[in-house]
Amino acid sequence: MYALEKSTVSFKLNGKEVHAKIDNQSILLWTLRDQFALTGTKFSCGMSQCGACTIHLDGKAIRSCTLPTSAVKGKSVTTIEGLNHEVGTRLKEAWINEQVPQCGYCQPGQIMQASALLQENDNPSREDIIEHMEGVLCRCGAYYRIIKAIQSSTKTAYHGSRSE
């Protein structure tokens, strides 16, 4: 019927320069999953309602299920597979210590969202956590442990627990 304009877009993905083949229908979530085999970023609602697809775009938590791939040109994208900085490592450790995941499907999105919070505010209150995490759904209802895991991942809590 009609052909779409194909092009290549370059961006930084988990620290490395990459090139993706796209057209004007390409959505970042599917580009990450299909072209780079980064399947930790999940599809669930497709309309930025649930947060399972959360990634970092230049350090900010963004829903990738509605983001055109062309929009990340020249920017830096981080997925759960590449979340290896100090905050990310603390969070992943806390997620295991608190035994947070049940089905686990939403958890990469939860961790990406939580990481963006702690990078901005290392001492969030319970209210801060809830406000920041409100957009990421967990159908297994692991919220109680998600809150605990974030609270135990702050620098103070983490190093405090280490020195005990």
């Binding site: 970023t41 597979e81 997620w95 295991i96 947070v100 995941p101 686990g104």
Partner: peptide, 16 residues
């Protein structure tokens, strides 16, 4: 046993 893979994004669901 399944939790580490569900935290680092490697756990395989059918959609993956």
């Amino acid at each position: 046993y399944d939790i580490p893979g569900k935290v680092n994004g490697t756990a395989q669901y059918a959609i993956d």
